[in-house]
Write a protein that binds this DNA or RNA. Structure first.
Lengths: 204, 204
DNA sequence: CTCTTAGTAGACCAACCAGTCAACTATTTA
DNA sequence: TAAATAGTTGACTGGTTGGTCTACTAAGAG
C-alpha cells in the first residue's frame, strides 16, 4: 500500500477553520486548498464536492472534541458543575480564538447550520446529528441533577434541548456583537433556566 | 419632479425575502432584481452595493414591523402578557411562512448577522442596532413586571438581553431542525429565565 | 526492478458573480 | 413645448466559483 498522506485531515481542518471564522459561502475550495497546502486535484481526490467535505469536516471536529467532552461531563463530577465547567471551557476557548483572529466566533454548528439549512440537506442533517449528540451531555447532567434533588426537571430531554438552544443563542449574539460578556454571564442564565436557587448554585 | 417609482422598496423587499429564506451569500444581485422585476441598472441606481442594499432592507423591515411591535408591547397590556403575545405572534408568523416555503426560517437578523459578522461591518452594525432596539421592548416589559412584583429582575437590561439571546437560539435551532415545536415550548422557558412561578404565569 | 496503487499536479472550463456605463424614456414644471 | 429631472435598460467586464481531466509521482509488494 503505497504513499500515505495526512492531506484529508489537513483539508477538513482548513475548511472548518475558514468556515468558522468567515462563513460557508465565502469559504472557497481554492482558499481551503491554499490553507491546507493542497492543489485542487487532491481536494477532489478525497471529496466529491464542497458539501461532502463540509460533512466530513464537521464529523472530524466532533471526533476531535469528543474525548474532552467526555471528560468535562464525566459522571464523577457533580452534575451542575459539569455544565459550569463546560461553559467555562467554551468561554476560555472563544476568548483565546479572539486573540488570534480578532473576533468572537460563536459555534460553527449554528453558523454553518443556519446558513445552509434550506439549501444543503446533507450538511443540515450532519449539523442536526451532532447537535443531538451534544445535547445528550446536557441531558444526562440534568437527569442526574434532578435525581439528586438539585433541580426539578421531570423531562430532562426537553430541558436539555431548551438549555442548549438558549446557550447557542447567547453564542450567536456574542458573535454578532463581537463581545464575550454575554457568554460569561450565561452561567447565571443557565441556573435560571434549570430552576436552581442561588443558594444551591455551584459553589466556588 | 418627474417619474415616481416604488422600485426601491420592491428591491429591499425582494432582498429580505431571499436572504431570509436562503442566505446572504447565496442571494445574488441578479436574483434580487429578477424577483423585484428590475434590471441591474435600476439596482445600482438606488444602491451603491449589495452590502448597502442589505442595510436598507434590514432597516425597511424594521420600519414595517415597528407599529405592530408597539402594539404588542403596549404599556396597556400586563407586562408578562406582552411577551406571551409576542412569542405567539412570531410562532404563528413562522408557521405561516412554513406553509409557503416549506421551511422554518427563524430570525433574519440572526441568520444574516451571524453569516456576515466577520466580513461586512456595516451590515453587522445594522443588525446590532436593530437588535438593540428590539431588546428595548423586552426590557421595559421586564422592568414593569419587576415593578409589579411579578418577577425579581433588578437589572432589566441584562435580563432582557439574556432572554432575547435565548429566544434567538431557539429560533435558530428551529431553523436548523426545521421544526416549530421548540418555538411553541419557548414560552415556558421564558418564564423560567424570568423566574416566574408557575402559578403567576399568564393565565389562559 | 517493476508493477500496482494511493496520492499529487495544475491547466482548464462553463457558469456565475458584483459592479459599470452610455443610451434611453417617462413625467413634471416653466 | 421644451428643458430638467428621476428612473430604466441591458449589454458588457474582469474576476471568481465549484468542478473536471489527464498526466504525473512516490512508495510498498512481488
Amino acid at each position: 500500500m503505497p504513499r500515505v498522506s495526512d492531506m484529508k485531515q489537513r483539508l477538513t481542518d482548513a475548511a472548518l477553520d475558514l468556515m468558522w471564522e468567515n462563513s460557508y459561502g465565502t469559504t472557497s475550495v481554492d482558499a481551503i486548498c491554499e490553507r491546507a497546502g493542497a492543489k485542487k486535484g487532491s481536494f477532489y481526490y478525497f471529496f466529491k464536492s464542497k458539501s461532502e467535505l463540509t460533512v466530513a469536516a464537521l464529523e472530524a471536529e466532533w471526533n476531535k472534541n469528543k474525548a474532552n467532552m467526555d471528560a468535562l461531563f464525566s459522571p464523577t463530577i457533580p452534575p451542575l458543575e459539569r455544565l459550569d465547567r463546560y461553559f467555562d471551557y467554551v468561554h476560555d476557548r472563544l476568548a483565546e480564538l479572539k486573540k488570534e483572529c480578532g473576533s468572537i466566533l460563536g459555534c460553527p454548528l449554528l453558523s454553518i447550520g443556519s446558513e445552509v439549512s434550506t439549501q444543503d440537506q446533507s450538511v443540515r442533517a450532519t449539523v442536526d446529528r451532532i447537535w443531538d449528540r451534544k445535547i445528550k451531555y446536557f441531558e444526562s447532567a440534568i437527569r442526574d441533577a434532578h435525581a439528586q434533588g438539585l433541580i426539578v426537571a421531570p423531562d430532562p430531554e426537553a430541558k436539555a434541548r431548551a438549555l442548549f438552544a438558549c446557550y447557542h443563542g447567547t453564542l450567536a449574539q456574542a458573535r454578532i456583537q463581537n463581545d464575550v460578556e454575554l457568554i460569561r454571564d450565561f452561567k447565571h442564565v443557565a441556573m435560571d433556566v434549570l430552576g436552581v436557587k442561588q443558594a444551591q448554585a455551584v459553589s466556588k
